[in-house]
Design a binder for these strands. Sequence first.
DNA 1: ACCAATATGTAGCTCAAGCTACAATTGAAG
DNA 2: CTTCAATTGTAGCTTGAGCTACATATTGGT
Lengths: 158, 158
Amino acid sequence: MSRKASPTRNPLLHALPTEQAQARRFGKARTARSTAILEDYVELIADLIESTGEARATDIARRLGVSHPTAINTIARLKREDLATARPYRGIFLTEKGEALARRVRARHRLVLEVLLALGVPRETAEADAEGIEHHVSEGTLKAFSEFLKESRVKKAS
Amino acid sequence: MSRKASPTRNPLLHALPTEQAQARRFGKARTARSTAILEDYVELIADLIESTGEARATDIARRLGVSHPTAINTIARLKREDLATARPYRGIFLTEKGEALARRVRARHRLVLEVLLALGVPRETAEADAEGIEHHVSEGTLKAFSEFLKESRVKKAS
DNA sequence: ACCAATATGTAGCTCAAGCTACAATTGAAG
DNA sequence: CTTCAATTGTAGCTTGAGCTACATATTGGT
Ligand SMILES: [Mn+2]
Ligand SMILES: [Mn+2]
Ligand SMILES: [Mn+2]
Ligand SMILES: [Mn+2]
């Protein structure tokens, strides 16, 4: 038997979720945290290629605000996970898998940003917060976000 | 001079932000990531104390879905950062600083959850996503969220 | 063709966050 | 009062993500 103090002692407003449910939620957040960096990299690589024609390690490092060895290490992880390839002095390229991830991540980023703006968050605050929030927005939430935007655009056309 | 390929080659929709601006945003997200775990711990400790009278390392570990040495290690970090203290076999306690953080974090968590629900996100999805999103929601965004909720409550009372 | 600036690569470190395996302590039930 | 299950603690490992310092490679300009 457990030595825990009497459970459900305080039947006040909003009790705790069950251990299992809470552990599941925290686990999802941990997973999201661990893929957040990969997502940022593939998104940035896609953006750089689209707007400048190439994505070099140094540029990636500078835009992320990290040292270049850090960027190179993470790019190595991208390669290991079959998300990117590199031709030295010729830039970083996304694999098919990497491009697919980049498409999803970019669409999600845009949507999250638009929702924040629609909710009245100031532009720069929205841009900054979206960079972190996006990685924790699941499909279900994305769905609701796009519904909300649709409505709010209709309402705005009044 | 830089050896970069011709910059601003593609003057299409939404160009990249400046390097500095983007680095600042990514840096904020990194900071948020590194404090997310501390925030989850103090919030959970406060919740456990409030609803069961105590917060023991094992319970914390189980609710987080991690091994107990992992929880103990992180609790050591909480102590180092003057957020918590522990009396062995008697549970974890928050310092003044810890309680202050817990209050802020709990209020923020609630608000984020309510906004997701108000946007039509299904309950369990909202609970799960909020656990990760909350750590990236700044003061400015929080402000906008509470404004939005105020309006949406008024509208609902129609 | 050369050279210097830029880019890339490598070595080696720190810290956080996770794990398993094992040891020690404690307190509740008999 | 003893015992044993539960809790806590320790040791030692892995991986990711960051850093600095130094070494090597490439290329654009002269
Ligand atoms: Mn991001
Ligand atoms: Mn992004
Ligand atoms: Mn959380
Ligand atoms: Mn929380």
